[in-house]
Amino acid sequence: MINKIVQSVADALAGVKDGSTVLIGGFGSVGQPDVLIEGLIEQGARDLTIVLNNAGSGRIGVAKLMDQGQVRKIVCSFPRSKDPVVFETLYREGKIELELVPQGTLAERIRAAGAGIPAFYTATAAGTLLARGKESREFEGKAYVMERALKADVALVEAWEADRWGNLVYRGSGGNFNPIMAMAAELTIAQAQHIRELGELHPHMIGTPGVYVNRVVQVDRGGDWLKPEQV
C-alpha cells in the first residue's frame, strides 16, 4: 500500500541536510507552507539556499528562518514586502546572498528542472542587468538569454487537500509556485489542510499527481472561513 502521510511535522522534515537548496511555495502568504517553514526552523538545518517568490515579511515564517541564521542565499523575484526588515538588514550587512530572478524566469527555471530540461532561452531580461554574464543568442532577429534549470534538494509545498498517494488539490490562487516546485526537488514535502480517502479527489481537480510528492502532513490552519464549499 502506498502511504505518504506522515504523522508529524517533525517526521515530514526529517533528514533535511545542512547546505540544502529548498524550494518554498506560495505567493505572499497564499499557498505558503507556513507550518513546514516553522518545522524547518525547529529542525535546524543551516547554510540553506532558499528559493521562493518573496523574501518574507515581519519576523515570522521565512523571515524568522533567515533571522535564525539558517539561510546563506535567497533566490527570489521580489524581496520587498510590507515589512522586509529581516531580509534588508541581513542584505545590507552582507550576511545573506541574493540572486534576483524575474518571476517568469524563476517559474520556468523550476519547471525546467522538474521536466528534465537543463537550460532554455527566454526574451525576458535580454539587454538588462539581470542578463549580465549569461549566454545570449539571437533567434529570428530577436535577443534571448540562456537560463539554467533550478533543481533543488527539498520542496515545501502547501495544498488544500491531499490523499495517501500524495495527490494534491490546490485552492483559489494557492497553486502558484507549488505545482512546479513539487516537480523540481529530490524530496517534496506537502502540508495539506484536509486528507481525503483515495479516490475521493476528482482526477480533474488534482493539481499535482502524487508521483511528485514524497511526504504529506495534515495541518489544520483553522478558521471557519476556510470551507471548501466557499472555493
Binding site: A55, F78, E88, Y91, P102, T122
Partner: peptide, 16 residues
C-alpha cells in the same frame, strides 16, 4: 536606493 532591488514579473511582462 540602497535596499535590494525587486523585479517581480515586470521584465517578463515587458518582454512578452
Amino acid at each position: 536606493n540602497d535596499t535590494a532591488p525587486a523585479v517581480g514579473g515586470a521584465m517578463d511582462l515587458a518582454a512578452g
